[in-house]
Amino acid sequence: MDTNRDNGLIEHERAENDLVALKTSPAQKRTSYINLSKMRKSFALKPLAIGVTGVLLSACSSDKQDATVYTNLQDCVDQNPSAETQCKLAFEEAQKEAERTAPKYNSQYDCEYEFGANQCRNVQSGSGSFFMPFMAGYMVSSLLSPRPYYQPMFTSYSRNSSYRNNWIGADGTSYGDTRKRNLKVRESAFDKKPAVTRTIQRGGFGSSVRAKSAWGSKSSSKGWGG
């Protein structure tokens, strides 16, 4: 795969404030490695709306699934010469999905603050005028199966963003460095979810906290842990 094509997603220099997780030796007394991109939490500015991504993959398989990020249609075709039709279909569907689920902002400034200069476009819709980032790629799994899975991907070039040079799903999930194209993604299959029932009463826990908070305002906003 030619990762040096000038498509805006070539290898970036690490930003000076980018963090390097030091390798530690077994004798050391601290956690040896923390995946910092997974610890990041939020968009710099809260978008007006973020997408709810669909359930990932089928309900049957239980392991993590291989997925590949393509930066554009040609990228997908180049790597899957015999699957041009599937690439095209997935690309078009991902674009539609991007329109629907991309984080949306009131102003170009807010959008560019998160995603970088010239990374946003204006969209007019029934509910008004918004700014949203361009789709930077699309993630595809099981491309050759009858029902491939696809999802639009975004990325940020902004120094203000904790997602800088990371693949981002529409809901703000980080999928790691944009230099990585082959990913293992976790499915959230139906059979892993809790059973759903009907609740008949709520509020049976918490009375101790109400009672003890009433004692003084000083400690009420502090936790109940110790």
């Binding site: 029932t197 009907r198 609740t199 008949i200 009463q201 709520r202 509020g203 049976g204 826990f205 918490g206 906290v209």
Partner: peptide
């Protein structure tokens, strides 16, 4: 905690 409920 305060939102926890019970079913039948």
């Amino acid at each position: 905690i305060e939102d926890i409920g019970i079913d039948a």
